[in-house]
Design a protein around this nucleic acid. Structure first.
Length: 478
DNA sequence: TTTTGAGTTGTTCGA
DNA sequence: GTCGAACAACTCAAA
């Protein structure tokens, strides 16, 4: 048994953003090839830039979970670090691999990288097989009547639903004939040093999150059983921890597949349309990214190139630290810092605030989210920031400027969310918690808040900031 | 080819 | 307090 491991030519399964064993077409193909499977992960830049800090934390735990899952099936997870363009061909030679399998990625940099590796291997007579698995449908699959990709969500999603031909989710392999020898340069997960140390800012991550496939499925199950029926009504309530599914980081790392979510949700039935539409938005973001590789760095609508940003570093910093003086905005940014995640409704409000009230280029916000979100995703992050900015496809119109305190009053009516994340305001009465600057002196005194000392005064005045933004928008249009 | 209706998530103002 | 209209103009998708 042990002997053939070192002598028989293995198939390499290169894990990337698909850290699971179930519904994994690439893994299934590698197993079904009959050859031993060498399971590999390579730590390297993703989507053309360094991984964000919060993503690294998640990755560490996700790799541990995957390693355990593979071990129980009979395979070791080999970890390397460096440029895959060099590593893969050299590893293929080292172990005399006969094929390489992976799940497709759709951002421009990864596509280029995968293409380059594929062609190098081909020259050596080795087949690299790209498989689907990270999306319900490939981004080129769903086309309009005139054979172009969809640029508007609603008709896109209707076309997807009309086809109704999502294949069944694949079961995890019963066992894997793992190629478990030693390879050069392999390192333990801990040596990747993905966890923060000095300081350890991730103390607040452990409580809300359980990275890995088991955690993902547990969350999905509980959400479908208890909360999906109320999703349409509750998904916007910032303080409700069960209002949304919380699956985004699991999806981002591929610990669960959208196809699994799709079928599990249909099994439960009931009022699931709105929830599945959000899975649809993830798909749509990938359509946009695939057809616009610069979605994360360039305005989708060129008309926005002439917009005059103010790009104040001080204002950006105040926003990042949750010190804008607008409680709902600050609560969101502090939740992000503490837990690596922010409620979707609050993401829109904080993003709108940065772009339109503070006049900071949406790319600065996109970068901050990339660094701080555990669910940082090259498609969703880019498409969503452009949506808020108004520069994206099917975007919010620029003149739609979220009011940072009425949004709070609507979606956090009791101020529970603000009190949780901005504790210095926890003594404020409901009436003023979203606009402390309007509170009479005695109310502030009673709450123990001195504006400008315990909590900042508003960094900009809402009405004036709104008019300034609209004016600049108009100017940029000539 | 031309036309037509529609387009995630809002805000403000005035009646 | 509530309701409808204006906010601008454009692009998209399908008939």
């Amino acid at each position: 048994m042990r002997k053939h491991i070192m002598t028989q030519s293995p198939n390499i399964l290169w894990f990337r953003r698909d850290l699971r064993v179930a519904d994994h077409p690439a893994l299934t193909a590698a197993v079904e090839s009959g050859a031993p499977v060498l399971c590999l992960y390579i730590d390297h830049d993703f989507a053309g830039r360094a991984r964000g800090g919060a993503s690294k934390w998640w990755l560490h735990h996700s790799l541990k979970s995957l390693k355990a899952d593979l071990k129980s099936l009979g395979a070791k997870l080999h970890i390397l670090r460096g440029n895959p363009d060099v590593i893969i061909p050299s590893l293929v030679q080292e172990v005399a691999a006969s094929a390489v399998h992976w799940s497709r990625r759709y951002d421009g940099d990864s596509i280029e990288l995968d293409k380059s590796i594929k062609s190098t291997l081909k020259d050596d007579g080795i087949d690299a097989h790209s498989h689907s698995g990270s999306l319900l449908r490939e981004p080129w699959e769903v086309k309009t009547g005139s054979d172009t990709y969809y640029k508007v969500f609603t008709p896109y999603w209707k076309a997807c639903l009309k086809r109704d031909d999502i294949g069944p989710a694949l079961p995890a392999p019963k066992s894997i004939d793992g190629w478990n020898g030693n390879i050069k340069g392999a390192m333990p997960i801990d040596d990747l040093e993905l966890l923060p140390t000095d300081p350890d800012w991730a103390g607040g991550f452990d409580d809300p999150w359980t990275p890995g496939s088991a955690g993902a499925h547990k969350r999905l199950k509980s959400f479908l059983k208890n909360h999906v029926d109320d999703y349409k009504e509750q998904r916007n309530m910032a303080a409700n921890e069960h209002g949304t599914s919380g699956l985004s980081p699991h999806l981002a790392f591929g610990e669960i597949s959208p196809r699994e979510i799709w079928h599990e949700t249909h099994k439960v039935g009931g009022n699931t349309y709105t929830f599945l539409s959000e899975v649809g938005w993830r798909e749509f973001s990938y359509v946009l990214l695939y057809h616009n590789p610069k979605l994360g760095s360039e305005n989708y609508k060129e008309a926005f190139d002439d917009f005059k940003w103010q790009n104040s570093k001080a204002k950006l910093r105040a926003w990042q630290h949750g010190k804008t003086g607008y409680p709902f905005v600050d609560a969101g940014l502090r939740q992000l810092w503490a837990t690596g995640w922010m409620h979707n409704r609050v993401r829109m409000v904080t993003a709108s605030f940065l772009i339109k009230h503070l006049l900071v280029d949406w790319r600065k916000g996109e970068e901050w989210f990339w660094d701080t979100l555990v669910d940082a995703d090259p498609a969703s992050n880019a498409a969503s920031w452009q949506w808020v900015a108004g520069s994206g496809a099917d975007a919010s119109p620029y003149f739609r400027i979220f009011n940072p305190f009425t949004q709070g009053e609507k979606f956090d009516p009791d101020g529970e969310y603000v009190k949780r994340w901005v504790p210095e305001l926890s003594g404020m009465p409901k009436k003023y918690i979203h606009r402390p600057w309007e509170a009479p002196d005695e109310v502030l005194a009673k709450a123990g808040v001195k504006l400008g000392k315990d909590y900042p005064k508003p960094i900009v005045e809402h009405k004036a900031a709104r008019e300034e933004a609209l004016g600049r928008y108009k100017d940029s249009r000539g």
